[in-house]
Write a protein that binds this DNA or RNA. Structure first.
Lengths: 364, 364
DNA sequence: TTGAAAGCGCTAACAC
DNA sequence: GTGTTAGCGCTTTCAA
């Protein structure tokens, strides 16, 4: 690529970049002084520092992270591991983490483990090993091996959403969140409430978030004296399409509940799409509630349990920075609050017993 | 952090990681041979390579990217620069790029320039300088200075969506995409068609995507013998909220068009939310069309011009890899196809002249 | 096909 | 407050 470069003078002339020696020469000090000045260490005379900064700017000097990392053992970058950046929750949490980390001068290495392939490659190669100073994982479904692999890196680790013994975690109380969603339905008079939940390829592996929300559903049902239905589990697709398919499957079954609790909003939204296409009125015949407060929830008028997703990522990042700075020594478990947002997708059931599907021909 | 580490033997015992010397010792060869073997270079006897690979595995050896980068001048990582990971388009394009790059063994440095702060910090510090081998920018609004700054890095650069002279670009034809959306409305008989478009803080700066879609709107209108309305520009918020606010603003105005062309789906979706809340029937009174085929478009039944966003990112990544491999020498301009998806948000106008708002009290 | 030696560009420990 | 001296852990000539 033949690209114009800014004119560069006083250069030792080896590579395309000025080196610390060039800056040192221009500022008429030693390389160590340049290093100290640029990193804002004490023990540098103000005027010296000034000269160095000017020289550096003049030469468009940027430290080589490789060299600096090699010498110091620090990379000034953080690994962020995420299963699907395309899902609203993850995108927002990543954004929260990135914003905090960038402000602190850290770079973010993004590891996107969407496919099983990508996940295997990742854990096989462990590209994090000497590349980052710390890691934040966003509720990646992990086997025990994976977990051990991450911990064996011996670097600070914070998870968003996934509780693991001895690891700092930022999350919501998924059990309680699910309970409050289901309780809302119960209070409206629903007795036949089903749950739409995701199911990873490997049941051992899944998201703890998913497990906890199912637990919350069961508890709320039992507390209300209701029988939890077998969760409807979506094996294949995630997100909206998964929810839509699961709903379609449920419609093809015999007994339709009067209310649905979806593990997260995208599932709920997918279900709403299927319901709309099937001409089933919401909440007239079925009420739907989710978890997240996805930005689309207000658009489709979905009742949901809101969580502060950007903040989850941001808090995780801050905890990591604290740990790196030596402040935080022991693992902590931070639980952010949730809030029920009542919207138009929930209402009383059609009647106390109208829990069967309308006969064919009954209209709809 | 006191963490169990896998048992490690035959170690020089300095750091937490095995070094190339440890591997060399265990395999009974020189470090150079280890290096060659691990990188799959020729000129290594198959059995030697075998021994080395076993030794490396035994010691859980992972090369130090810093050291390797310093010595070779290559970082094996790519910078991905994106304004908002949380917006659907960007999340998907990032995912596309990540997937391709990860498969090729590259790491991804994510730079999230959502806020003006973050952008300034980024261009001020140019953290990419020696950190990455190449850069893909996802339609980041750039000033000329910024553009020059990126090009001055002297490394391969591919943009998604943003055309710049002499830079490889992967995009759709935004003018044509906009025209096909507007033509669809024209063919349905609409004569009063407005556009909802975004407007960056700095008009000089904006997305070329935005400019081109406005241009397409104007051309389609003129071709149809219609007067383009002054675009309704959203100055503040982006995405859904921006669209919702712009729509509200339009509702407070005097003359309501019979159809709306939104620069991208999130704007359209925000507008739909406002319209629903205002009780204005879609497409009965107003038709709405967007661009993207956002995953929510099918949920809210939005007519839109679909683009393959994941593929945009993936193609960009592949072009970058080609360039790094020495295959691609000259900048290219790749244009991916779009397709009009007709859904339920568009229909004929209420009547040939019913373009005024209903009188107060007329119901709705 | 392999090994020895010389850096890559910086930081850190120590001297002054 | 500043300079000197060694590396950090690799890759890369070059020589064998």
């Amino acid at each position: 690529m033949s690209v114009d470069r800014p004119p560069v003078e006083n250069r030792s002339g080896r590579g395309p970049h000025a080196s610390i020696l060039d800056v040192a020469a221009l500022a008429d000090v030693s390389p160590s002084t340049v290093s100290r000045s640029l990193r804002g260490l004490p023990n540098v005379a103000p005027q010296t520092r000034q000269r160095v900064l000017e020289a550096a700017r003049e030469l468009s000097y940027v430290v080589s992270p490789s060299a600096s990392g090699l010498a110091s053992g620090q990379t000034r970058s953080i690994g962020v591991v995420v299963p699907f950046v395309t899902r609203w929750f993850f995108a927002n949490a990543v954004a929260g983490a990135c914003d905090v980390l960038a402000e602190a001068g850290y770079d973010v290495l993004l590891y996107h483990l969407g496919s099983a392939d990508a996940r295997d490659r990742f854990f096989d190669r462990m590209p994090l090993a000497r590349r980052v100073d710390a890691v934040v994982t966003l509720t990646v479904p992990l086997t025990d091996d994976h977990t051990l692999g991450l911990r064996a890196l011996g670097m600070p680790l914070v998870t968003v959403g996934a509780q693991m013994a001895g690891v700092t975690c930022v999350r919501i109380d998924d059990v309680t969140a699910a309970q409050s969603a289901v309780n809302h339905l119960v209070h409206q008079g629903h007795e036949s409430i089903a749950m739409l939940a995701s199911l990873g390829e490997d049941p051992e592996l899944g998201f703890s978030t998913s497990r906890d929300r199912r637990e919350g559903y069961r508890r709320a049902m039992r507390t209300a004296g209701l029988e939890p239905r077998d969760d409807l589990l979506m094996a294949g697709s995630h997100g909206i399409d998964g929810g839509a398919e699961a709903m379609a499957q449920m419609l093809s079954g015999d007994i339709l509940p009067t209310a649905l609790f979806a593990e997260y909003d995208e599932i709920a939204i997918g279900a709403l799409r299927t319901l709309r296409r099937a001409g089933i009125p919401v909440p007239g015949q079925i009420s739907v509630v989710g978890v997240d407060d996805h930005e689309m929830a207000s658009v489709v008028d979905l009742t949901t349990v809101a969580q502060q997703v950007h903040e989850l990522g941001a808090v995780a990042a801050r905890l990591l920075l604290d740990t790196l700075a030596g402040g935080l020594q022991e693992p902590v478990d931070v639980v952010l609050p949730t809030r029920l947002m009542v919207r138009g997708s929930t209402g009383p059931p059609p009647s106390r017993q109208a829990s069967r599907r309308p006969d064919p021909g009954a209209g709809g």
